[in-house]
Write a protein that binds this DNA or RNA. Structure first.
Length: 721
DNA sequence: TTGTTCCAGCTTTTT
DNA sequence: GCTGGAACAA
């Protein structure tokens, strides 16, 4: 292969980044400027032109999806298998490191990764055992505190005791939690990263080995790295000048999760020899969308500075719709979708983006009513579902009897007659003798401590878990899974659940068997972990997509956060209201407000051709009627790029936006907002909206007797009262 | 052990 | 206004 295949398709800036001689590099990649492309081509360049072995390349991403995509794109481009290349998420790579060097990491070789849900349960249990008031110290806040410390690389022992009782208690819980995890070999997400960092830092030999191995280190979405992640990267690359990072400070939207946008500025200090490259050529959006986005983000201070441009035309103006209320907003969006589809376009090219998940409901209802297929992103992921976690807990416990989280989860699921009293006794003994719940149960059984009923139940449980373990020895992975969910009675248990909920659960369990069948066991995985072990770790680290890819053509609904990295020809950004977007909690803090603005920027730059922005003048939130002001972000978008859409024939009250153009629909002017009319069947009502033109013209009327209705003017016989 | 009722809480969530 | 979880009663 020659050079041309790798760099011909690139623009000048991209080409410079891809083909530069080895040194640290910061690629400031604007939205839609081809940042993944640069990473992929850079790696291809190293392998093909610089003859670097894939073995010597490390690439880190944040999501499993991004990691997979990057690997397959490199492989496609070069037509080789790049298996020996380390590409993965920070968490995945940290896990791999800890597995391979568990001794150096001071972890038992049976250590287990726990997800955030397990972590919360663990903290709750711990606090109960410590008799801590969970009103003063809500477990969620405790978890947040602990993770925030770990993200900063701070252990309990590093924290100074203060006189503050609240802080003091948090610290005590943190310390106890650390001990408990260490004793039972549990590793939460933040711990994976922190432990991986410490392990390298404290083992000169290991560190030297990995520094020698990873001759080139690449990072995607660098603006989202937290303190520990960056420290880990620095450790690996210190003195080597080989850290290649790609990021966009304007798209940093995870500060609240510990991401440090400062890492981008610090990088420039820490790697003084670095080359800075800006990718500002945008291949996604029209000129108007880019101009508007540029203007909005320019309102932020402390940026590295970047302006997106396109060679394409200006395209359509951004449309702004001021809705009467949230119902009306949803109606408007769905109506536009109907038109778009009627014009022969794909539903899957449409995204509805909102600030908070709760906003999806309105749109779902309206979409459902019009029979428009849609898909909501977010929500529970496959491996997070209760039934799946229960099934996995059986497998966990069969493998590691001392895993207390698994024990707690399934000791009475399905119900087998083990009540609170029985469980309390077990917990008590476990705590006082510092042994696992399983061991405590065995001891109490031996001592004949329980009532006959409880004893039977527990004996049956022990037998069940043991028999699963015995069976497993000569079974394939998927057979083990299948056997476990059947023998455990989980299938039966969920079948009994009323409604289609239970049905869905059983289906999910069957899907789990499938997932096990498809699980790719990495035989040459340097360490001799069992297939089941790796499958369970996989389940914790990769939560799995919410739904398996549904190939039906449907409208995409998601939060602005989950839209990052995606693009759609038609985008609706909804709920642009003060208090909602920017969110109430952010308006008093400049740093958080700027993050909201970046979020808005991320949303706008998802749009390729058409962007609709809307807000409601009145919105029901938590059961209360609100009259929010339009979002300040609307005023930051230049009027030249916007047009205001009006469905209503008459404008009830002027809105405080600065749009130049106005598009007024439903112009016949026969009916006006607020006009009283009479329908021969429905009785009297008030006109709420007018929409459409000519024979398509329709009015929405709120009837005193039958509520809101949409009527076609050409059919409905209306009388002005 | 199960069903009921009451009550807080309520942005965003790559792993 | 809805939901999940905890506290109750049966």
């Amino acid at each position: 292969m020659d050079v041309t295949a790798i760099i011909d398709s690139l623009n000048d800036a991209q080409r410079e980044a891809v083909s530069a001689p080895t040194r640290s590099m910061l690629v400031l990649a604007g939205a839609g400027s081809g940042k993944t492309r640069v990473l992929v081509h850079r790696i291809a360049w190293l392998i093909k032109i610089e003859h670097i072995s894939p073995h010597n390349i490390l690439a880190v991403t944040f999501t499993n999806k991004a990691a997979k995509e990057m690997r397959s794109r490199v492989e496609d481009l070069l037509n080789i298998s790049a298996r020996s290349m380390w590409i993965g998420t920070f968490h995945g790579l940290a896990h791999r490191l800890l597995r391979q060097h568990n001794k150096e990491a001071k972890l038992p070789d049976t250590f287990q990764v726990i997800d955030s849900d397990d972590q919360l349960r663990l903290i709750k249990r711990l606090m109960k055992a410590m008799n801590i008031d969970d009103n003063r110290w809500p477990p969620k806040q405790v978890v947040w505190y602990i993770n925030a410390q770990k993200d900063e690389g701070i252990r309990a022992k590093h924290i100074q005791e203060t006189g503050d009782l609240y802080q003091q208690q948090l610290l005590v819980i943190y310390r106890t939690y650390e001990d408990l995890c260490q004793r039972s070999g549990l590793v939460d997400f933040a711990e994976l990263l922190l432990r991986a960092h410490e392990t390298l830092r404290d083992n000169a030999e290991l560190l030297a080995f990995y520094r020698a191995r990873f001759k080139h280190v690449h990072v995607d979405e660098f603006q989202d790295t937290n303190t520990v992640q960056y420290a880990w990267l620095r450790l690996l690359t210190e003195g080597q000048d080989n850290l290649f990072v790609v990021g966009d400070d304007d798209q940093s939207i995870y500060g609240w999760r510990g991401a440090k946008i400062e890492n981008m500025f610090n990088f420039q200090q820490h790697y003084p020899n670095h080359l800075l490259i800006r990718l500002e050529q945008n291949y996604r959006s029209t000129g108007n969308i880019l101009k508007a986005s540029n203007a909005l983000i320019a309102c932020n201070d402390g940026r590295m500075g970047k302006e997106l441009r396109t060679d394409g035309g200006d395209g359509d103006l951004i449309s702004l719709y001021s809705a009467f209320n949230e119902q009306d907003e949803a109606y408007f969006v769905v109506e536009r979708i109907r038109k778009w589809v009627a014009e022969g376009n794909l539903r899957s090219d449409i995204a509805i983006l909102y600030r908070s998940n709760a906003q999806s409901r309105q749109f779902e209802e309206k979409l459902m009513a019009t029979g428009t297929p849609y898909r909501v992103y977010g929500g529970l992921r496959f491996f997070d579902r209760m039934e799946i976690k229960n099934a996995l807990a059986y497998l966990f416990l069969m493998l590691h009897k001392d895993n207390d989280s698994a024990f707690e989860r399934i000791i009475n699921t399905p119900t087998r007659g083990v009540g609170a009293k029985t469980l309390d006794d077990i917990r008590q003994l476990a705590r006082s003798k510092q042994i696992s719940l399983w061991q405590a149960m065995i001891e109490l059984l031996k001592a004949g401590h329980f009532t006959p009923r409880a004893e039977n139940a527990l004996k049956g449980f022990v037998q069940l878990i043991n028999s699963l373990g015995e069976q497993a020895e000569d079974q394939e992975l998927y057979e083990q899974v299948k056997y476990a969910i059947e023998k455990s009675g989980l299938i039966e248990f969920h079948k009994k659940e009323k409604g289609d909920k239970g049905e869905a659960r059983v289906e999910n369990l069957e899907e789990l068997v499938n997932a096990a069948r498809q699980f790719e066991f990495d035989e040459d995985n340097e360490e001799n972990f069992s297939e089941l072990d790796l499958f369970l770790a996989h389940a914790a680290l990769e939560s799995g997509d919410a739904q398996a890819d549904d190939f039906e053509d449907c409208v995409q609904l998601m939060t602005l956060h989950s839209a990052k990295g995606l693009e759609f020809p038609l985008v609706f950004m909804v709920g642009l209201e003060e208090g909602l977007f920017p969110s109430q909690q952010s308006v008093d803090d400049i740093a958080r407000l700027e993050e909201e603005r970046r979020l808005c920027y991320v949303g706008m730059t998802r749009a390729m051709k058409l962007l609709y922005i809307s807000y409601a003048e009145s919105r029901r939130l938590y059961g209360k009627e609100n009259h929010p002001r339009p979002s300040r972000f609307l005023k930051e978008i230049p009027a030249e790029q916007m047009q205001e859409i009006r469905l209503r024939a008459s404008v009830s009250k002027p809105v405080s936006t600065n749009t130049k153009a106005k598009v007024i629909l439903g112009t016949s002017g026969r009916y006006q907002l607020g006009q009283r009319v009479r329908h021969e069947k429905f009785g009297e009502g008030v006109v709420l909206q007018v929409d459409g033109e000519g024979s398509q013209e329709r009015v929405q009327i709120n009837f005193a007797n039958v509520g809101m209705k949409w009527l076609m003017l050409s059919y409905a016989k209306l009388e002005v009262v």
